[in-house]
Write a protein that binds this DNA or RNA. Structure first.
Lengths: 248, 248
DNA sequence: CCGGTTCCGTTACATCTTGTTACCTTGCAG
DNA sequence: CTGCAAGGTAACAAGATGTAACGGAACCGG
């Protein structure tokens, strides 16, 4: 990739310039920005490879901005905050940030995170896609991408873990197509934007377990799966039609 | 095989070049194309091992192009669509695509699919082809390709194993035609979507066993088969009319 | 910093699938 | 009727998958 172009978004002028300088000294092209409006104009004007976004922006809120941007495009975003409380951290992740760093941070650490996110992004780069916060319906079930909720045919909300939800999303994106465990794994990593990204190729059968657990929650008879069928020797299939409605 | 030559067909210049680059970085020869005319000139000019075809091509329609190309030659084609609604439309490779992928997709997943299709294609030219996801009726029985379910004349769902189901599909695609074991074997492999399956040429009588097992599940009197008749010295025949309804 | 929870990967073991082999039955030419 | 080749099938074996149980890590209140 060419030299990465970063956007440094912070409402404190001093922090902004220090960060910008630091990043430029380390080989990045860093552009300062102060508001959502500025971010957007930058993105419209030219390529932006990653946004370093402060959570507390005076009048604006970084988390919300992140959510909005994410809903529209797929720019990698790293959230920066002075508050390292887990609560905030969760909010950041749910909103789709690629990573989250607490201030004050070690410069080297920041660089490392940057590179990691950029690399990850460049791998899955490309393709247009904005995160689709759509509403999926499949055989009476509903998955609301906006709220990240799953509703049973009876309208009850089903509690899926994050990983289970990701798994479901992978299948919803590929109905009727048998997915190999490998493919599923890849899909999970992508969906899981952040995640524990278990790098080391697990030697086990994590996917099988995951599927089993998801089945136990969404199949009326897990012994006789109607939704997540196994494709022996291959992997698993979502054996039902899926309709997708964009939520505006 | 030599390095596979792929055609990347998409009307968005950026997507096209990114995809092309990505594929080249992964060891393929990737050529960009934008229209059916370009595809054809490429194919006339030289070998093309696989076409990655976007469904939405501005003025042209990927599905139709796919159908046309398929009618003439059998280049492997993978359809790419951004809308999962298209899934339903193409549902079933009825246009003859070898696979299809929903955008956005994970690059790794794309690679996996590519390799699967290429490998499958390189193995053999296909005779016993099939349509998928249609609804077949034969002598009171029903096979629902969408759910991959078999219903008895009495409406009971019959539990067929994966392989048995595939076998049934092969016969449904070729009613009244005596199929040699070899042909059946080939048909099975194709049906097996992404199947690595037993490579080594089985030295045994797997097909006979399979037929036997299928008979025991769908013949009222397995000793006196009405559906799957034996064609002595040749193989087996599905000795009954089959009606096929496209599931809308 | 300490239990209690939840999530999730690993392991071990029960089941299910499916190919192979061996042996029996059937079809058919002579 | 006899013999042989082809097909039917039971029994077995190798693999793949379902699943309960276990354990470690992260998280949550105190």
């Amino acid at each position: 990739m060419a030299i990465p172009r970063l956007l440094v978004v912070d409402d404190d002028a001093e922090t902004r310039s220090m960060l910008t300088q630091f990043l430029q000294q380390n080989g990045f092209i860093a552009l300062p920005a102060e508001s959502e409006a500025e971010i957007r104009s930058h993105m419209q004007a030219g390529r932006v490879d990653l946004i370093l976004l402060d959570v507390m922006l005076g009048s604006e809120n970084g988390v919300e901005i992140c959510a909005r941007l994410r809903a529209e495009q797929d720019v990698p975003i790293i959230l920066v905050s002075a508050l390292s409380q887990d609560h905030q951290r969760m909010a950041g992740y749910e909103v789709g940030a690629d990573d989250y760093i607490a201030k004050p941070f070690n410069p080297e650490l920041l660089l490392a995170r940057l590179r990691a996110v950029l690399q990850r992004a460049s791998r899955s780069a490309s393709l247009v896609y904005r995160r689709r916060l759509a509403l999926f319906r499949f055989g009476g079930w509903t998955y609301d991408g906006k709220r990240d909720e799953v509703l049973s045919p009876q309208g009850f909300q089903v509690a899926l873990s994050q990983r289970e939800t990701s798994l479901l999303k992978v299948f919803l994106a590929n109905p009727h197509i048998p997915l190999q465990r490998e493919e599923i794994q890849a899909g999970l990593q992508e969906n899981h934007a952040t995640g524990p990204v278990a790098e080391g190729e697990g030697s086990g059968r994590a996917i099988d377990m995951l599927v089993g657990r998801l089945r136990s929650k969404i199949e009326s008879d897990p012994k006789e799966p109607q939704l997540l069928r196994t494709a022996r020797g291959i992997g698993y299939v979502l054996a039902i039609d899926v309709s997708e409605e964009p939520t505006e």
